[in-house]
Amino acid sequence: MNLTQKTLEIRTSPHILSGMSTDTIMRNVVYALLPVAAFAVYAFGLAAALVISVSTISTVLTEHVLCRLTKKESTIGDWSAAITGLLYGLTLPPGLPLWMVFCGGVIAIALGKFMFGGLGYNPFNPALVGRAVMQAAFPVAITTWHPAFTTDRFYNLPDSTLTLPFMAPVFKAVTTATPLAQMKFDHKIADSYDLAMGFVSGSTGETCAVLILLGGAYLAWRKMMNWRIPAAIFLTVIVLSEFFHYLKPEIYPDSLFMLLSGGLMLGAVFMATDMVASPMTSRGVMIYGALIGILVVVIRLWGGLPEGVMYAILIANAASPHIDRLVQPRVYGTGGVKRKT
């Protein structure tokens, strides 16, 4: 404690510091994400590599330019913009035109983070804000999926990737459906082993559940991530989907499929755990995780879209300050049981 500092400093919680600085944590999140990104490049080839690099460059560049414009010290050194870019890139389909990837990265930082005052003030996960705007702006391009493990993936790009800026992409190459879309529209369930190992189509980084869980386990072990959030999400999804699967097994898929398909793993482990946008108390994060789980199951089973993890997390982000207020610990000496006189 610095003794010369005599003025009383008033700050909002949390007050107890763990001794880890923002950039240490953020750097470790990048380490945890690197295997996922590497697998994305392995599975989807050059297209995924370009999407992930452009998304990361766009967010870091936007952060730097906006800091300069507002005459602040550039905050790209804390790695948070790089994580936003990496996560945002991992949620995109591999054949998305690169100019759309870039626009989304700019929006993610400018609208999702900087508009609210930078890191620590964003009510939503910036990566998901960028993706949500892209989804609303280009609903066709962002739901056109390319098959994984094509033989020419390391030297051939899909036609759509290099579309000129602001021009409509042409999807000539073979496109495919994600396991979730197949479940929703054709009632075909993919093999669980393929889902877990990532031998299916989907967004660049969401396919390999095992690597994502390993990254999450590393972060939880280093105490850099609140493990209660993914645990609560998984538990809720398992209970709800098993219940509906038990009622109507021919319509509703089992819980293993629900867990491993789509962006649930990536979202639950890396996005719902956004430190700024999730609640602070342990009870709060349980409610938060359960809310995400319920929303994911509801959107997937009855919504118009095959996947709902993004919207589920964004809605739960919006609710998290209210959850915090709801579970606020009682201040000692106030409230409680009234004593009989």
Partner: peptide
Amino acid sequence: VLSAHYQPWIIMILPG
């Protein structure tokens, strides 16, 4: 007013 290959930003004509 724009090129025929222009990719519209659907979100702009939505409430958002």
